[in-house]
Design a protein around this nucleic acid. Sequence first.
DNA 1: TCTGGGGTCCTAGGACCC
DNA 2: TCTGGGGTCCTAGGACCC
Length: 427
Amino acid sequence: MFWYTDVGSDLFMVKPIIFHIDVNSAYLSWEAAYQLDRGSPLDLRTIPSVIGGNEKSRHGIVLAKSIPSKKFNIQTGETLFSARSKCPNLVVVPPRYNLYMKCSKAMVDLLRGYSPTIQRYSIDEVFIDFTGSLNNTRPVDLAFEIKERIKNELGFTVNIGIGSNKLLAKMASEFEKPDKIHTLFPDDIPSKMWPLPVSELFMVGSATKRKLHSRGIMTIGELAKCDPKYIHSWLKSHGLLIWNYANGVENSVVRNESPPIKGLGNSTTMPSDIIDSRTAQMVLLSLIENVSIRLRESKKCAQVISVSLKNSDFVSYSHQRKLQTPTDSTNLFYKQAKDLFDEMWKGEPLRHLGVHFSHLCSNDFFQLSMFQEQSEKQRALDKTIDVLRTKYGNDSVVRSCFLESGLRPLMGGVLEEEDYPMMSSLL
DNA sequence: TCTGGGGTCCTAGGACCC
DNA sequence: TCTGGGGTCCTAGGACCC
């Protein structure tokens, strides 16, 4: 569990020190800080409250919850209907994704002052590797300084987990919330991690929890003490992964750069079920427009397109196709998507449609010119429209079929939001 | 007024090839 | 008729994370 670094003629033992920084109830904290900044007398964090989607458009689930709302057993992901039935006075606030991205960036900018080695794990989670760079500073002292600075300068609290690898740091940051620092080193595993329910282990979700419970494995410690060969033969590679995690074994590096994107997609739940293929096709086109813009922005082509749908019974299925050649053409994707949809759809009412591109490759011109069947005219058109939309907004160029349709011409992703005054503390 | 959206990775089974 | 087996590619579905 230790690294040995050869410095000059001396052999130093360097203890790995990884921080995991996790914003407490991120969306809700950010919204609360924003509202206080705008002069609201109420702090959402102190009352039962949630960030929740729009129920009228069938996006009504809990996206984040305050700590007081946890006392009502409100769960992230459950319906607002259900959450309100548990807590009738629950305050529900709609999400503001632009604000969250700004808050996330402000935190990362602050953290960059401490280390160049920062991994942004999600919008509200960051890993930092302080191995060998702390000199005589105690890790908890540094964590305290960081935590206080985020609280005082940005207006929200974080948990910081400190461990000898990313898994232990992440597990540590989950311990007691909010505004807390915890350590979890190999010696602490039996006392701090093994007594926990197995479902609290990273990568043990509901399905694996069910399987483990069915064979009497209830705690992380019980999993840790199993024979790894048994777990491996039973749960395959995922079993071995969680067995290693249960024993605190994990050795991935804190990486600065995000790995290359493997695939990208958009999907949307419609305000009401789709019952005709014409509407479905327009939604697919709208989704494809959005994903292909992102694809071209990232200078990629895709060779596999997948169309997925969820019907009114919440049954999902998907259909995918590998193209002869990779492409980034909106029209070519749309042609494929229509075929895939027609081959798959059984005619039942649909609540959700999705489009996903994968098998990405570079859109390097030399490669494309070899075997791309799309005409140069098509490429130029896509490019021109991208430029216009970047310059004048996504509404500046709209396919005529959308004009009287009542459908948005670019669906998927987070909703476009109007601009609003930013928090003074983030300026 | 009941159940989001964007990702990654893995596995099973069939087709196909040698 | 008692019917190889290993490897790769493809598709569909499911697991996990935030």
